[in-house]
């Protein structure tokens, strides 16, 4: 009974913390937008360049499909759907949690992490809400546009509960990205710097944009069970496209997100305990 009470209290506290996080995020985002207005041109050019990259990628896909009808049974528009879907969790993580990169790149090395420790909120929350990466809106817009374009060409086996399932998959897909970044950023508490390690592992997210059938067995296992990027895009997208294996595709994403997040929190807290500021 006492245990249950403790548990409820804990949940309540977490809930309060999350609500506080959102409020803080609004305040920080407003500040960040002001800063952005100062460099409007940078923002617009950044968004344009992202658009160009995506258009080129899709054009490339179209060229490939000029020569073949399907890629291991997946049509052009199905691949476009998977590609578009992959941009959503990635974009959301990019929008809300981009500052974790900076933890690995220099916040710890320069000793700037001290300031987060002095604040009356969790350092992880504090460092995450500090930045609001508006560039990522490009990713979200392109992702949604690709999904809309592709579904008009596919016979989607659509049922109403696909929408909540898709939202759940996107949110937990984002959690996979964020948790991987938390784990890798935490390494910098021991090594002072881990930006390059984040980049190395993060680079593997490209694997999520295509059907896993095209990869060899070790790669397929790697992106499913070790660094589960396949759950951020291909598995949930394949469920939405063909209703195959809902338990594995959607529940797998949820489980992968939760497990990684738990590991992330554990590593982060262990890291905080060994953090030393830079002496100067």
């Amino acid at each position: 009974m006492c245990l249950w009470g403790d548990f409820c209290l804990k949940i309540f506290e977490i809930f309060k913390e999350v609500r506080r996080g959102f409020r803080l995020f609004r305040i920080f985002a407003a500040q960040h937008l002001k800063k952005l207005m100062e460099y409007k041109v940078d923002f617009i050019t950044g968004a344009c360049s992202f658009l160009i990259d995506q258009v080129v990628n899709i054009a490339f896909l179209a060229i490939i499909f000029g020569g073949v009808e399907s890629l291991k049974g997946w049509s052009y528009y199905e691949i476009m759907f998977i590609y578009g879907f992959s941009l959503l969790p990635k974009g959301l993580d990019h929008l809300f949690c981009d500052n974790l990169w900076n933890v690995g790149y220099g916040i710890v090395r320069r000793g700037e992490f001290d300031k987060y420790l002095t604040r009356p909120i969790s350092p992880l929350l504090s460092v995450t809400v500090e930045m609001f990466q508006v560039d990522s809106l490009g990713e979200l817009v392109v992702g949604i546009a690709l999904i809309i374009t592709s579904v008009t060409h596919i016979d989607l086996p659509f049922v109403w509960y696909d929408i909540p399932l898709a939202i759940v998959a996107v949110l937990f897909g984002m959690l996979i990205y964020t948790s991987i970044k938390i784990i890798l950023a935490s390494i910098s508490f021991w090594t002072k710097q881990s930006g390059h390690i984040i980049n190395m592992i993060y680079g593997m997210n490209d694997f999520s944009k295509y059907p896993v059938e095209i990869y060899s067995r070790p790669v397929r296992y790697g992106i499913t069970y070790i660094i589960p990027f396949a759950f951020t895009a291909f598995y949930p997208a394949s469920y939405l496209l063909r209703h195959t294996d809902p338990v594995f595709s959607i529940l797998g994403t949820v489980i992968a997100g939760c497990v990684l997040f738990a590991i992330g929190l554990a590593v982060w807290h262990k890291g905080l305990s060994v953090y030393e500021s830079a002496g100067s």
Binding site: G195, H196, M200, G203, D206, F207, K209, I214, V219
Partner: peptide, 27 residues
């Protein structure tokens, strides 16, 4: 740092390698 950075970048080549393998298998 540089080598780790490079490994992150080269991932794209491996992804495309598999994509091309599938293209040649399918065509």
């Amino acid at each position: 740092n540089f080598i780790a950075w490079f490994i992150g970048d080269i991932m794209y080549c491996f992804v495309m390698y598999y994509v091309w393998r599938a293209v040649f298998a399918s065509s």
